Amino acid sequence: MENKYLGMTVNERLYVSGQIEEFDKAVKEKDIDKVISILKSVELNEDSIQPILENLNLI
């Protein structure tokens, strides 16, 4: 399986996928399920998502 986001930062992945505004809204609303769903949709795995959630003070 090819990762079309390989080499991109999280922000770049969100921008290219057109989900950056939706992601920012989910973070602001502290909608953890939505944040995780968006991060998975840009091909991040659980090991990558956990530190992001911690950094955003969502967990």
Rank of each mutant, 00 (worst) to 15 (best):
Y5H: 14
N3I: 12
I20R: 03
K28L: 10
I32W: 07
L44T: 01
E54C: 00
N11G: 15
S41G: 08
M1H: 14
L39R: 04
I36C: 01
K30H: 06
L44F: 09
L14F: 09
I49H: 06
D47M: 13
E2D: 12
N45H: 13
L53N: 06
E29R: 15
I20N: 01
E46P: 07
S17T: 07
L44V: 07
K40M: 14
M1F: 10
L58E: 01
E54G: 09
G7I: 12
I36P: 00
E54I: 09
K4Q: 13
L6F: 13
I20P: 00
L58Q: 05
K4S: 14
T9F: 08
E29N: 15
V27A: 11
P51D: 02
E22Y: 02
K40A: 02
E54F: 08
P51H: 12
Y5A: 12
D31G: 06
N57W: 12
L14C: 08
S37P: 02
T9N: 11
E29D: 15
I38Q: 00
V42H: 03
N57K: 15
I49C: 05
R13A: 08
S17G: 07
D47N: 15
E46S: 15
E54T: 12
L44E: 03
L14A: 04
V16I: 09
Y5I: 09
P51S: 01
L58C: 09
M1W: 04
L44A: 02
A26M: 02
N45Q: 10
E21H: 05
Q50W: 10
I32T: 05
Q50P: 04
I20F: 02
K25Y: 04
T9G: 06
P51F: 07
E29W: 11
E29L: 15
I36L: 01
V10E: 03
I32V: 15
G7T: 13
F23A: 00
E2F: 09
Q50A: 12
N3Y: 10
R13Q: 00
K34W: 03
L39I: 08
I38R: 03
A26R: 03
E2S: 07
D24G: 13
Y15P: 00
P51G: 04
T9H: 14
D24L: 01
I38K: 05
E43H: 08
P51A: 05
L56C: 14
L53K: 04
L58S: 03
R13H: 02
I59A: 11
